[in-house]
Simulated assay, not measured.
Amino acid sequence: MEGTISKRTTIVDIARVAGVTPKTVSRALNDAPHVSAAVRQKVKEAAEALDYHPNLAAQSLIARRSFLIGLTYERPSPSYVVELQNGALSRLDDGRYRLVVLPFAHVASRPEELGKLLLRAGLDGVLLAPPASDQPLLLDMLERQRLPYARITPHSDLDRGLVVAMDESAAGHAVAQHLLALGHRRIGIILGDPSHAASIGRLEGYRRAFAEAGVGIDDDLIVTGDFTYAVGYEVARTLLASAKRPTAVLAQNDDMAVAAIAAARELGLSVPQDLSVAGFDNSEVSRTAWPPLTTVNQPVAQMAWDAADRLIAMLDGKTVPELPQRRDHAHELLVRASTAAPAA
C-alpha cells in the first residue's frame, strides 16, 4: 500500500499540549479524584482541540473492565422491546458504556442457560427485563459470580439487587374498573404469557376490580394470547365469535388489543359502539391505532433508564448498594376512543 496512515491522537499528545503527564491526562479524562478542576478543564480542552477519541478496547484492557451493559428480555411485543432499548440507550449515550442486547427465549424453563450466556458475555453488569427479572436461580448464579444486575418490574424477591418496579395489580385494577364503571358486565380477557409474572399480577388486579363491583368473571371469556399480535388475533376471533360474545375486551398488552380491534372489524363489529377494547403499556401502536386505544401507561423507557442509571452508579462506585434498593414508578390510565358504554 502506498501513502501514509494518519496517526490517532493519544493521551501523550494531549499531555504535551496541556503541559501535564500522560497519567494526569488519563485521570482527568476518567474523572478520577485528586485532579484539580483547573487541570481537568485544561486537559479536556486539549483533548477537544486535538479531536481525541478514546480507544474503548484499550480502556477495557487497562481497567480490566469491558464497559458493556447487557440487556436481556424474552419475546414480548416489538413496541415493548423498543421502549426498553431506547430507555437504556438514552442513559448510555455519553459513550463510556455500550449496550449489548441479549434476547433469550423460554427464560422460565432455561434460567441456568441464560445465566451461563450472561456470564460468558464479558459484561460489567446486566439489566434483567421480565421474565428474567423473576428467576431466583438466575439471580443466584449472578450473585455467586459477582455480576451486578438491575431488575426491571420484578414481582418476587423484591429485596434482591437493584429493583425498578411498578404495581401491575393496581394498574390492572384501574383499567378493569374503567370498563366496569362504563357499565360493561360481560368482559373478555386476553392474557399474556403465563410464565410472565406481569400477566398474573394484572389478572389479580382485574379480579379485584370485578369483586369490588360485585361482578363475576366468566372463565369462558378468558383466553391466552401470549403477548403477540398473531396469537392475540386468533384468540380474539374465537372469543368474539362465541355465543356469549363480550361487550368489552381487556387485553394485557397493546399488541393484543389492536389485534382484537382487527378481529372485531373482520366480524363486522364496530369499536367502541359494539365492542370496547382496552390494552396495556401505552406503546406506539396504541397511539396510532384507530380508534386510539384506551390503555395503561407503563413507563417502560423511563424504568429502563432508571435501572441503567442505578446500575452504572454502582459500577462506578458512586453508591454503595444497601438492600432493599427499590424504586417504584407510577402507572397512568389513559382513556381514549376505543372504550365507551355498552350499547343498550
Rank of each mutant, 00 (worst) to 15 (best):
R27S: 02
R27K: 10
A28L: 06
A28D: 00
A28Y: 01
A28W: 01
L29C: 04
L29I: 08
L29E: 06
N30G: 10
N30L: 09
N30E: 08
N30T: 10
D31C: 07
A32G: 14
A32E: 14
P33L: 06
P33W: 07
P33A: 09
H34R: 14
H34L: 15
H34E: 15
H34C: 11
V35M: 02
V35G: 01
V35K: 01
S36F: 04
S36L: 05
A38L: 12
V39P: 02
Q41C: 11
Q41M: 12
Q41V: 09
Q41E: 15
Q41R: 11
K42M: 12
V43F: 03
K44I: 06
E45N: 07
A46D: 00
A47K: 00
A47D: 02
A47E: 00
E48R: 15
E48Q: 14
E48W: 11
L50S: 03
L50P: 00
Y52C: 05
Y52P: 00
Y52N: 08
H53D: 10
H53V: 13
P54F: 01
P54W: 04
P54R: 05
P54T: 05
P54Y: 04
N55W: 09
L56G: 08
L56A: 12
L56Q: 13
A57V: 11
A57C: 08
A58R: 05
A58D: 03
A58H: 03
Q59P: 01
S60F: 00
S60V: 03
L61Y: 03
I62Y: 14
A63D: 07
A63S: 13
R64G: 12
R64C: 09
R64A: 10
R65V: 04
R65T: 06
S66W: 00
